[in-house]
Design a binder for these strands. Structure first.
Lengths: 130, 130
DNA sequence: TCCAACCATCACACAGGTGTGATGGTTGTC
DNA sequence: GACAACCATCACACCTGTGTGATGGTTGGA
């Protein structure tokens, strides 16, 4: 597929797909006319990128993380340098922190919503038709 | 305490504390000389802000969420408008998505690290001194 | 009294993710 | 062949969170 379809199927803009490529997150093949060409796997990959970006990770980090998330797990131990592994561990820990933090706060919001709804219920019922 | 101490105790810069105030996330009282004055509760509050920012939420949203996270839970049902509640629910759902997404990916990274470590172990041991 | 160490405001700058538009090439259809 | 609908590159601009520095007021200790 070409860039327009990928954009539609991932809910991104063409501009961003080019940007992700520029940042080295995806590498499109090129047709003879210069058009970028993508296969289906890019759909998930782009969604993954969007999710990680939304979670607050910068492209620089995403670039390092992505190769480890490939589903067919082809490369077990690539040229993973010790620094690379250290980065991964550090990033994993930061993600764990984020998860815990988000969970705590989401639960607090939930609790708040519950309380508000409980206290609001009474005034929903007005005089029940005497 | 004044801005310098708060900055030190929260690991932020004075600049950012003023920015958060400008964005309506915190409201400092002012001493007679114009200096900002904070009590201890601001330490947690600022850390909370930092965490939410780090998790990818913009100040605009944080501003709406923060009041629901106050620990003494003083305000059960404030002037919570329906739109406000809707925003909260939407944001809670987005946080849940983020949590699930982060968890999946963190686990994948973890799994990757495990595999790499397993496959790397062998070549740590070189010829064991014949 | 002077100086260091705070504080205030304000302005400019930057980086990263994103939008928008200019300019021009390719392709398929009428 | 003309036109619409793609595609390409490039440049400029925006927003948000941050840094940095200029300029000046306050305070407390040598």
């Amino acid at each position: 597929m070409r860039i327009g379809e990928l954009a539609a199927r991932t809910g991104t803009s063409r501009r961003l797909l080019r940007y992700y490529e520029e940042q080295g997150l995806i590498v499109a093949t090129r047709a003879a006319n210069g058009y970028r060409e993508y296969d289906d796997r890019f759909v998930d990959r782009v969604k993954q990128i969007r999710g990680l970006l939304d979670a607050g990770l910068p492209t620089r980090i995403i670039k390092q993380i992505l190769p480890c998330l490939d589903k067919p797990r082809t490369i077990y131990f690539p040229d993973a340098t010790p620094e690379m592994l250290a980065t991964l561990e550090r990033e994993r820990d930061r993600m764990t922190e984020r998860i815990e933090f988000l969970t705590r706060n989401r639960d607090a919001i939930n609790e708040y919503l519950d309380v508000v709804r409980a206290n609001r219920q009474p005034d929903v019922e007005l005089e029940p038709a005497v």
